[in-house]
Design a protein around this nucleic acid. Structure first.
Length: 268
DNA sequence: AATCATCCCTGAACGC
DNA sequence: TGCGTTCAGGGATGAT
């Protein structure tokens, strides 16, 4: 599940391989409605590679190639596509002879070419909240948003209050901030703790080159390291690092939620 | 307007 | 051993 740290790691790895390359040819090996207008990338040059939330954006002048990795999406630049990638659905042939590939076993990922800033086809991107590691992530705005929320974890996953958080980093941030995933109407003190925890878990995730729970690979096909530093995610039954109470798993907002039932108490 | 359930998809894990 | 079922989750969608 590539979230902000994973996508940022990939962006860093791939930018030197992609920037200033011209896309000579686009090959869609598996047609899917999740892949749209990709032929428009042909003949255009990648001027820069940026990230917004969990989206990678290749800037092609009068077009943008938007990439979302979904659950199992993997990208890389090679002279040849590695043979163990059995779900390569799109290949972009570059001017230097390399191929930029998109591999996605479960096909939750998206690849769409649009006019710059035209995100009508991607409502989550159009309504994306502030970047958590930038100055745009304002504490006071965040505080007023979480003060009115019904279920804090659902808001974090929605991307609307803050960009780039998925199931792993949501659980980790809520644990650090000692807030129950089903908590509503956060106090200003809780909001401040959560704001800080979000920045901390995402920064550490980037420093550790992302979390490889199962499918995530960096831009070079290698594992991240952050899974070794998780406190609660996928640690059901293991002792809480703070108080030794066994970590519990609940279902919140349709997703698995890991928490310490002693440190993260639900209140009115 | 906000919230929620449903669906998409594949492969691993599980039960019998 | 093998087959069928369940589960994992980001985000679009439709319903409430």
């Amino acid at each position: 599940m590539p979230e902000l740290p994973e996508v940022e790691t990939i962006r860093n790895d791939l930018a030197p391989e992609l920037v200033q390359q011209t896309i000579k040819r686009v090959e869609v090996l598996f047609a899917d409605p999740h892949y749209q207008n990709l032929e428009e990338a042909s003949g255009r040059t990648i001027h820069s590679l940026t990230r917004r939330g969990k989206y990678l954006i290749a800037h092609l002048g009068d077009r943008e190639l938007l990439i979302h990795l979904g659950m199992t999406g993997q990208v890389g630049v090679q002279q040849e596509v590695p043979r163990d990638l059995r779900h390569v659905h799109v290949r972009f042939w570059l001017g230097n002879g390399n191929v930029f590939y998109f591999n996605d076993q479960r096909r939750f990922g998206r690849l769409i070419v649009v006019r710059p800033g035209d995100y009508a086809a991607l409502p989550t991107l159009a309504a994306m909240g502030p970047e958590p590691l930038s100055d745009d992530f304002d504490l006071h705005d965040f505080t007023s948003k979480v003060a009115r929320v019904k279920t804090i974890k659902a808001l974090l996953l929605s991307q609307q209050a803050v960009a780039g958080i998925g199931n792993i980093y949501a659980d980790e941030a809520l644990f650090l901030a000692r807030i129950h995933p089903q908590q509503g109407q956060l106090t200003a003190i809780e909001a401040k703790r959560l704001h800080e925890a979000i920045r901390q878990v995402l920064s550490h995730g980037v420093e550790n080159r992302g979390t490889t729970f199962k499918d995530y690979r960096d831009g070079n096909g290698k594992y991240g390291n952050n899974q070794d530093f998780l406190n609660v995610f996928d640690r059901t039954g293991a002792p809480c690092p703070r108080c030794k109470t066994p970590i519990q798993k609940l279902r919140v907002a349709g997703r698995g939620a890991h928490l310490c039932p002693n440190c993260q108490i639900l209140h009115e």
